[in-house]
């Protein structure tokens, strides 16, 4: 079975890097591609699950291929197209291309070639081979809701915290966090971050036992504070650059 998690060294030594693209540039490409999937998806009324699945395909794809060989916007379209089918919210290829065209300038759209639909069809087969037909992807969203159900405290504050964590998960799609950590871990970390920023301290939860020192011990074993802060830091970099309202530094 394929394994989709990478350590920091792998994330620096990517096919794009070996192809002469600096890490900073690659990260910008990843962010732009992910953002484009989110924008195209929301313009087509695709749900968050389909969009997130498309983004995860996109990040995984570029662990095997260079951005120089495969331009990012057409790959992004193809990822969204495939995710639509897998999540049973299919969109016609030509409709996705139409929306893509409306969102991109002429120069960027020129990477779609002379017959954009045919290009996406061919790319679909390359994408499937690359992600090894491992099509079902889980996302942090479901875990956020699951965790929220167990936490006790002021309802309004709790809701606000979950809402904020949800936004962080959206933003985290533009990072490579999904290539580093399982969705349940990301959900814990971003809920933790949201709790800090919304000044909601979780002191009690359903199913608490004396062994638990924090609420997440109930769901994921062996999460250290160091790990949480690392994940939050990576997500926060993005949140900062997007000027998330009310965003404060972690420490």
């Amino acid at each position: 079975m394929p394994y989709w998690y990478y350590d920091r060294k792998d994330l620096q030594n990517t096919p794009s890097f070996r192809d002469g693209i600096p890490n900073d540039t690659e990260n910008r490409y990843r962010k732009e591609g992910a953002r484009f999937i989110i924008d195209t998806g929301s313009k087509m009324d695709l749900g968050y699950n389909t969009v997130a699945t498309g983004v995860v395909y996109f990040h995984r794809f570029y662990m095997f291929h260079s951005f120089r060989t495969f331009p990012r916007y057409i790959t992004a379209c193809c990822c969204l197209f495939l995710a639509g089918k897998v999540e049973e919210t299919p969109k016609k290829c030509k409709d996705i291309i139409k929306v893509a065209k409306s969102l991109l300038n002429e120069h960027k759209f020129s990477t779609f070639g002379e017959d954009p639909k045919e290009e996406v069809m061919t790319l679909e087969r390359i994408l499937l081979q690359t992600i090894k037909f491992d099509l079902q992807v889980e996302h942090p969203y479901g875990y956020l809701l699951k965790y929220a159900k167990c936490l006790k405290g002021d309802k309004t504050k709790l809701q606000k915290m979950v809402q904020m964590a949800w936004t962080f998960v959206n933003d985290s799609l533009c990072t490579t966090l999904c290539l580093q950590w399982e969705p349940e871990v990301i959900a814990v970390a971003l809920m933790f971050l949201a709790g800090k920023l919304s000044k909601f301290e979780v002191v009690d939860w359903n199913g608490r036992t004396p062994k638990h020192t924090a609420w997440w011990d109930m769901f994921v074993e062996d999460i250290t504070m160091e790990l949480l802060e690392d994940i939050c830091h990576q997500a926060n970099v993005i949140a900062d650059s997007m000027q998330y309202p009310g965003n404060a530094s972690l420490r």
């Binding site: 069809m121 679909e124 037909f133 099509l135």
Partner: peptide, 15 residues
């Protein structure tokens, strides 16, 4: 529209 949805769903489930 490429590979049929039903086939993709079935392979996703098998995986």
């Amino acid at each position: 529209d490429g590979i049929p949805l039903s086939t993709l769903r079935e392979i996703a489930l098998l995986r």
